[in-house]
Every structure is written in C-alpha cells, then in structure tokens.
Amino acid sequence: TYYTVKSGDTANKIAAQYGVSVANLRSWNGISGDLIFVGQKLIVKKG
C-alpha cells in the first residue's frame, strides 16, 4: 500500500494510523530520520 504524505502528517502519525512501528515505516522507505515531505509517497504495510 502507498500513502501520500499530507500537510501536518508525521512519521509517528502515519505509523499509528496503519498500526505499524515508525522503525518499520522508515525501513520500508529508506528514511533515516523523521523528515518526510508533503506529496511524498510512502510504502506502508498494514500491521
């Protein structure tokens, strides 16, 4: 599943929404920190 980042989103918020850990969200998308951008497409695997 892909999720498009919206204004006000955070890695924590997206992870919680899908029931996954922030560490997994980072791993699936090659993100090292919490910096995400509006319009960015993230791979999300439901927990």
Rank of each mutant, 00 (worst) to 15 (best):
Leu25Thr: 00
Asn29Ser: 02
Ser7Asn: 12
Gly47Arg: 10
Ile36Gln: 02
Gln40Asn: 05
Lys6Ser: 07
Thr1Gln: 12
Thr10Asp: 08
Gly47Thr: 12
Gly30Glu: 11
Asp9Gly: 00
Gly39Met: 04
Ile36Val: 11
Ser7Pro: 15
Leu42Trp: 01
Asn24Cys: 15
Tyr18Ile: 07
Ala15Met: 03
Leu25Tyr: 00
Gly33His: 09
Ile14Pro: 00
Asn24Val: 12
Ser27Met: 13
Val22Asp: 04
Ala23Met: 09
Asp9Glu: 03
Asn12Ser: 15
Ser32Pro: 08
Tyr2Cys: 14
Ile31Pro: 03
Arg26Pro: 02
Ala16Thr: 10
Gly47Lys: 10
Ala11Ile: 15
Arg26Val: 14
Gly33Ser: 10
Val44Asp: 01
Gln17Thr: 11
Gln40Cys: 07
Tyr2Arg: 06
Ile43Asp: 02
Tyr2Leu: 10
Ala15Gly: 03
Lys41Thr: 12
Leu35Trp: 09
Gly19Val: 04
Tyr18Pro: 00
Tyr18Ala: 07
Phe37Gly: 06
Gly47Trp: 11
Lys46Arg: 12
Thr4Ile: 15
Ser32Lys: 14
Gln17Val: 11
Trp28Cys: 05
Val22Glu: 09
Asn24Trp: 09
Gln40Thr: 07
Thr10Tyr: 04
Ile31Lys: 03
Ala15Asn: 01
Lys46Glu: 11
Thr10Cys: 06
Gly47Ile: 14
Ala15Arg: 01
Gly39Arg: 02
Gly47Gln: 12
Lys41Cys: 12
Ala11Met: 15
Ile14Cys: 03
Gly19Ser: 08
Tyr18His: 12
Thr1His: 12
Thr4Val: 14
Lys6Leu: 09
Ile14Tyr: 01
Asn12Gln: 15
Leu35Lys: 13
Ala16Pro: 02
Ser21Leu: 07
Tyr2Pro: 04
Tyr18Asp: 00
Val38Met: 07
Ser27Asp: 15
Lys6Gly: 06
Lys41Ile: 15
Ile43Trp: 10
Val44Phe: 05
Val38Asp: 05
Tyr3Gln: 02
Lys41Gln: 12
Gln17Lys: 13
Val38Ile: 11
Thr4Asn: 05
Ser27Tyr: 12
Ile31Trp: 07
Ala16Asp: 11
Asn29Trp: 04
Asn24Glu: 15
Asp9Pro: 01
Gly19Trp: 05
Lys46Thr: 12
Thr10Arg: 03
Tyr2Met: 09
Arg26Met: 15
Val5Ala: 06
Gln17Asn: 09
Ser21Asn: 07
Gly8Met: 05
Gly8Val: 03
Gly8His: 06
Phe37Ser: 09
Val20Arg: 00
Lys13Ile: 10
Ile14Glu: 00
Ser21Lys: 06
Ser21His: 06
Asp34Pro: 07
Thr10Gln: 03
Ser21Phe: 05
Gly19Glu: 07
Gly33Cys: 09
Gly39Leu: 04
Gln40Lys: 05
Gly33Trp: 06
Tyr2Asn: 05
Gly8Pro: 02
Asp9Phe: 02
Lys41Arg: 13
Ser32His: 13
Val22Gln: 05
Gly39Trp: 06
Val38Ala: 09
Gln17Met: 15
Lys6Thr: 08
Asp9His: 02
Gly47Leu: 13
Thr1Tyr: 13
Val22Ala: 07
Val5Ser: 03
Ser7His: 14
Tyr3Ile: 08
Asn12Ala: 15
Phe37Leu: 09
Asn29Gln: 01
Asn29Leu: 05
Tyr18Cys: 10
Trp28Tyr: 04
